[in-house]
């Protein structure tokens, strides 16, 4: 049996270009392909929003308040007569930027701190106590405090969302490093006189990538939600700038008159988050050699 595994695995081990790797991941299952298409549509429409939208998303027209969907206003209008469809398309700009950047920032910061905590013993105690302290504060409360301190802007909102996520990433990375550092190949590198930096970058960090991608997609999803919550509580980005959270927060009071104001952005948020998570799973499966090996034995 070993022999079959080895020969099959040796084909899988051949070098592949990054592009064909991406293609392989996207087409690994129909569901993943669908998720990739949906996400591409959302991202592209956010980027090219000015070319797509039929109305200015911030123009108030009090005469057109709370209109039902029509050929002029595809999804109807909100309480100030602004076109809902245009606002959702523009809202993607803020929500996606906040989601992706919060995920990248939290994962990046958490990765560095987690590697240090996991590998350098004396730093571990210090760093982890700080992390414990941060985790003791409810994340929404912390986010509100940060926004209140510095005033609401997209950057403060981003920082406010990122900071409470970092401790979780640090803990995850640290636990992965603690088990990876016991691997004989890490000890062999120590014996070969490799520097701490080289060992972390070359032997420890790759072990954390697959779980981090999953964690990153969750953070991305939760950041979009937290941004919505902050907007909802009035501690987010100023209300006239549309974000998915903002739109829902404002639409809440008019739910009975025009439920679409909450439901449509809600649907877009759910679909976007689901797509991101599906893609994250697919990337994880492609990167994690243990998963790949199991695939061959199946």
């Amino acid at each position: 049996m070993t022999d079959h595994t080895v020969s099959a695995a040796s084909q899988a081990g051949a070098r592949v270009s990054p592009l064909s790797r991406v293609r392989e991941i996207v087409f690994s299952s129909p569901l993943v392909t669908l998720a990739a298409i949906i996400l591409a549509v959302i991202v592209l429409s956010a980027i090219f929003a000015p070319l797509i939208v039929p109305h200015d998303p911030v123009r108030l027209s009090p005469g057109e308040r709370l209109k039902p969907p029509s050929s002029e206003y595809w999804l109807g209008t909100d309480a100030f007569g602004r076109d809902l469809f245009s606002r959702i398309v523009y809202g993607g700009r803020i929500s996606l930027v906040v989601g992706v950047m919060a995920a990248v920032a939290a994962v990046g910061l958490g990765l560095i701190l987690g590697l240090l905590a996991g590998y350098i013993r004396w730093l571990d105690a210090v760093l982890m106590r700080m992390v414990d302290g941060l985790m003791a504060i409810p994340s929404i409360l912390l986010a509100i405090a940060i926004v209140a301190l510095w005033g609401a802007s997209i950057w403060t909102v981003l920082i406010a969302i990122t900071i409470p996520e970092v401790p979780r990433v640090v803990r995850l990375v640290r636990s992965l490093v603690l088990s990876a550092r016991e691997e004989p190949y890490v000890e062999a590198a120590i014996a070969a006189g490799s520097s701490t930096w080289l060992i972390m970058r070359r032997h420890l960090m790759p072990n954390t990538i697959a779980p981090l991608i999953i964690q990153g997609t969750y953070i991305c999803a939760s950041a979009i939600l937290v941004e919505a919550i902050l907007s909802f509580l009035g501690a987010g980005i100023s209300p006239e700038t549309p974000s998915w959270g903002n739109i829902m927060a404002e639409g809440r009071i008019y739910f009975q008159i025009n439920p679409g104001i909450v439901l449509w952005p809600g649907l877009v948020v759910s679909v976007a988050i689901l797509s991101i998570n599906l893609l994250g799973d697919a990337v994880r499966d492609a990167l994690d050699p243990r998963m790949a090996k199991r695939g061959i034995e199946r």
């Binding site: 691997e183 004989p184 190949y185 000890e187 062999a188 590198a189 014996a191 070969a192 006189g193 070359r202 032997h203 790759p206 050699p289």
Partner: peptide
């Protein structure tokens, strides 16, 4: 570090003694 050259080790588990990713 300079002394490390003089003494090297081979471990038990052949599956884990080489970094699978490089």
């Amino acid at each position: 570090k300079p002394e490390r050259r003089k003494i090297q080790i081979v471990f038990q588990d052949p599956m884990r003694s080489l970094n699978p990713r490089i």
